[in-house]
Design a protein around this nucleic acid. Structure first.
Lengths: 233, 233
DNA sequence: AGGGCGGTATGACGCCCGTCATGCGCGTTT
DNA sequence: AAACGCGCATGACGGGCGTCATACCGCCCT
């Protein structure tokens, strides 16, 4: 009974993932039979840096941050959302995860054992293309991050961060652009490579000035233009 | 006559490249027939950011830096050497080059038209694996660069840079580890994300203290240990 | 109630490093 | 030779931001 409900959930999940959408119904059924779903809550680790990568992991619901723990503090490399594969590179290359993955919200994962994933790859070469596309995106994003951190002042970097977030996941609300994402000051700092105190100083000042307002699990940008000015410096 | 000599050179070049080594002799012959060689000298641009990527480019001889021109100054993202493909991502994805490529030394390139490259990909799926491997390497390198730039002081970053270079291309000489690579102070600065002046201050002091000596087209590290101390800070 | 904890906020201090200026040596140009 | 450009070197100055300290608030726990 429960397992039937479960398998029903899995089938729906498989169909909803862009990566599997183009597949034949038979392939989709096979994947659903081999894959499992797993739930997490905010703050949970999907894995830690160094763990073995035994499953191909796809996000069905929620968002996840990829974090590297460095001596000088943590660095958030990327935020993945629904439909995206997480840690696909590590799985593909038989390497331990180079970074940790932590949930920013309640998350549901579809997990496919590595062995089955490779079998799928053999029968469906488009998957290699999908991987390459993901890797390209990551490379471009990392390059941009490098440019931003380099030389720019902290305020400009944070402004740039929220402009990017607004572009990626912003919704037009009645008070301006709304970014539905729960990030602590610490996490903002980790994303632009600075300290909590500096992030707090900028964000609390922006709150007073009405440039960017922190709400419950979201940020609001009353005027994109004023944020852009801050980004220019 | 000349063309025979040329085709002879090409055949040798194809055989020397790791990417082609596993191929059947017939495939190697086909590649040699389609590819061309091109020579450059130090300072030449292989291409500039924004140029169309019409050829798969492999380094037969010499080294190349990948540079992004940012407002705050240039950033050297990567240095590629013999046997490595350059800009393979751009070719694969039909996108214009996201960064410029400049020769650090006299360079010889093997260039394969994109059309032929894709044909080769279809007939030989291992190539996709090769691409993914390259992309993975790049991602890891970029991640490391991010960590280094973040938080660390300039002196530590430069020390880290030369430790990495020593690991990648160092040779044991009579005075210590020798890095056979011509880099200006400006280029060192661009690699760690700082200014020329700061790079000069560190390097000239190290020269006086005997931590790292700049020679003709090379650097010498008398004692890895002292450099490591500088990297720790 | 009290105590611990995590996130947020604010002030004071200090120093690294980016910026600007100046000078030197060397090769190339006119 | 003078003029110019380029790479390297060194000094002075100032500010951004990392570091440390303190405090407030809400929440969970025993």
């Amino acid at each position: 009974m429960t397992s039937e409900i479960k398998s029903e959930r899995i089938t729906i999940a498989v169909r909803s993932l862009p990566m599997f959408r183009g597949l034949a119904a038979e392939d989709q059924r096979r994947i659903a039979a081999l894959a499992t779903l797993k739930d997490f809550k905010r703050g949970d680790h999907l894995w830690r840096a160094g763990d073995p990568a035994d499953y191909l992991t796809l996000i069905v619901r929620g968002r996840v941050k990829i974090v590297r723990h460095a001596e000088a503090g943590d660095i958030i490399l990327e935020i993945f959302g629904e439909g995206e594969p997480v840690g696909a590179i590590a799985v593909y290359n038989y390497m331990p995860y180079p970074a940790s993955a932590v949930c920013l919200e309640p998350v549901t994962l579809l997990m496919l054992p590595r062995r089955d994933y490779f079998e799928l790859l053999d029968r469906n070469p488009d998957f290699a293309r999908a991987i390459i596309r993901e890797l390209t995106k990551i490379t471009v994003a990392l390059t941009r991050k490098l440019e931003e951190i380099r030389g720019q002042r902290v305020e400009a970097r944070i402004a740039q961060l929220f402009l990017t977030l607004a572009e990626r996941m912003g919704r037009e609300g009645k008070d301006g652009v709304e970014i539905p994402l729960q990030l602590s000051r610490q996490e903002v700092a980790d994303m632009v490579g600075t300290t909590v105190e500096s992030a707090i100083r900028v964000l609390s000042r922006w709150g007073r000035e009405g440039v960017l307002i922190t709400g419950e699990g979201r940020f609001v940008i009353p005027s994109r233009e004023r944020l852009r000015e801050a980004a220019e410096g």
